[in-house]
Amino acid sequence: MQSFTVVEAVVAPLDRPNVDTDAIIPKQFLKTVERQGLGVHLFAAWRYLEKDGVQVPNPDFVLNQPRFAEAQILLARENFGCGSSREHAPWALADYGFRAIIAPSFADIFYNNCLKNGILPLRLASAVVDHLFHEVRAAPGYRLRIDLPAQEVQTMGDSRYPFEIEASHKHKLVHGLDDIKLTLALGDAIAAYEARRGREAPWLFSAPRSGATRV
């Protein structure tokens, strides 16, 4: 996983609450068996218009505006990423080039999925997010600097906004660590749990009856 330490980048504002994962990556793109290549479909229903049977960029959509072309930080509203558990949503955001999303709140599953893909989901108070929306709109080329080790968002005008993140999440992001290897290091504890649980609740560990009676 790509590590995340300090990112300074252009900010793109997406001013809608409750942006769901169907909007982030519509279902017609979930048939892939790959993780890569979804960036072109990010926000497809909002980002493209159909003209004479072909898809053309919708000039009104924020990511199609030249001033946000280099954006790597997405500024969003509350409950971002609600709905489906599809990891295709953070895959599409990462493939497009986003490294961080700033919002007042995130849906739980989406939040977790971002962390597994090197994207920092960063919570700031609603009033601060509101203020940042004003600043982004007022200043073409508006950039933010996100310092994860210091847990701070810095504006170019040198305002500083501290943010919270769980220590274990931060550690894994900063070092780009994948979970499985770390978890397998606890293999003995898992095996010990299974042995104990198997005595307490043996029905959970009896192999499914092969050729179980069909309903």
Binding site: E87, I109, N112
Partner: peptide, 18 residues
């Protein structure tokens, strides 16, 4: 509860989740 694909792989490999 629902999980993402990276977590599906994690459960396959370890039978556990963080």
């Amino acid at each position: 509860f629902g999980i993402g694909t990276t977590e599906v792989e994690h459960v396959l490999a370890t039978q556990c989740l963080w």
